[in-house]
Amino acid sequence: MNSLFIVDSHCHLDFPDFDEDRDLVVQRAAENGVKLLLTISTTVAKIDTLLALTERYANVFATVGTHPNRAADEPDVPAARLIELASKNAKIVGIGEAGLDYYYDKATPQTQERVFREHIAAARQTGLPLVIHARSADEDMERILTEETAIGAFPFVLHCFSSGKRLADVGVELGGYVSFSGILAFNRSLDIREIADGVPLDRLLVETDAPYLAPPPYRGKRNEPGYTRYTAEVLATVKDVDLPEIARATSDNFFRLFSKTPDLRTL
């Protein structure tokens, strides 16, 4: 068994892309050193599907929330409902993913913001980290995070980071973490690697966002959690450390942020 312990802090194991070989996907991840998977909610309506996966696989955990591109489908899920679901299930360890996506026009900015703020309230009240999706919305994201942190701090991670340096800096200043996906390894992503270099080592996570955004050498193919290793290797190069150190640091960071998750390294 691979001695590395890497966490895929963001994948979508429930998506139909994995219906034919889900067991093998989880097995291949472990063989590649990726030994804990966080499968991320995109709609509250599908939470039972995610929970079934967490029951099937001991090393799979979940979040609960509404993706901004689904905000028009679930515009009125209150923080209380998110809190209730999270409190009832030991394997729900985070809130989200929620946030702002202005790249697509699937929900109005006003609806996205209202839904996002409900998720922030749930994260603040539970102490569970909020998984934040931010795309083409840097200014509004900075504004909302700053306003809400002034009301009361809450744990969060800017997932699959592809925004500008200022948002990364603001996120870290407000106490958040920054997670990098396979985008980090793309040839054109010099700016993202520069941003990653500037994020403190104790605020970094790695992820796949599988089935999307497979890193080289699998670019253009279905992504899967085991490929987190390739992003971790690139991050190690960016930070001028070796892969075991990046694996340790990003796993330490994950368990610090997602503190409801048992540290499988000690079990």
Rank of each mutant, 00 (worst) to 15 (best):
T42N: 14
R193E: 13
E55V: 04
P217H: 15
E224R: 03
P68T: 10
A107N: 07
L267P: 09
V26G: 08
P129T: 09
A214Y: 04
G99H: 03
A80E: 15
P155M: 09
E245I: 11
I144C: 02
D242H: 14
D17H: 13
V77N: 00
I47W: 09
V60A: 10
T261I: 07
A98F: 06
E84C: 02
D8K: 05
I95C: 00
P225Y: 05
H67R: 01
A71C: 07
R124D: 14
K106W: 15
F161V: 08
R166Q: 14
R28K: 12
R222E: 08
P155H: 08
T54W: 03
V170C: 01
A58D: 15
L167H: 03
P217M: 09
I132N: 01
A98V: 06
E97H: 06
S87E: 15
M141N: 02
R166S: 06
A210D: 07
L37M: 14
L145V: 03
F154W: 02
T149A: 01
S179D: 06
Y102G: 03
N89A: 04
V241N: 12
C11T: 13
I120H: 00
A72Y: 11
P109E: 11
E113S: 02
E142V: 10
I6Y: 02
V157Q: 14
G198Y: 11
L204M: 09
M141Y: 13
S189R: 10
R70S: 13
E224V: 09
K91Q: 08
D14I: 05
Q112Y: 05
E194A: 15
T228K: 05
L37P: 00
E97C: 12
G152E: 03
A153V: 01
A247T: 07
E74S: 07
V77H: 00
A79E: 14
V64M: 04
A30M: 13
D76K: 14
Q125S: 12
T237H: 07
F18Q: 03
L38W: 04
E245F: 13
P262T: 06
V34I: 05
A80W: 06
R81G: 00
D101G: 04
T63H: 06
T231A: 07
E147R: 14
E207L: 02
A247W: 04
I144M: 10
D101F: 06
A122C: 12
D48M: 02
A210Y: 08
S259E: 06
F5C: 05
N89V: 14
D138H: 08
A121L: 10
I83M: 09
V131N: 04
F161Q: 11
A58G: 14
A236F: 00
N187D: 10
A232T: 07
T42Q: 10
N69Q: 15
G96D: 09
K35D: 01
Y177C: 00
G65A: 10
V170L: 09
Y57F: 15
V157C: 10
V241M: 09
A247N: 01
R124C: 08
G198Q: 15
V44D: 04
S181R: 05
F5K: 07
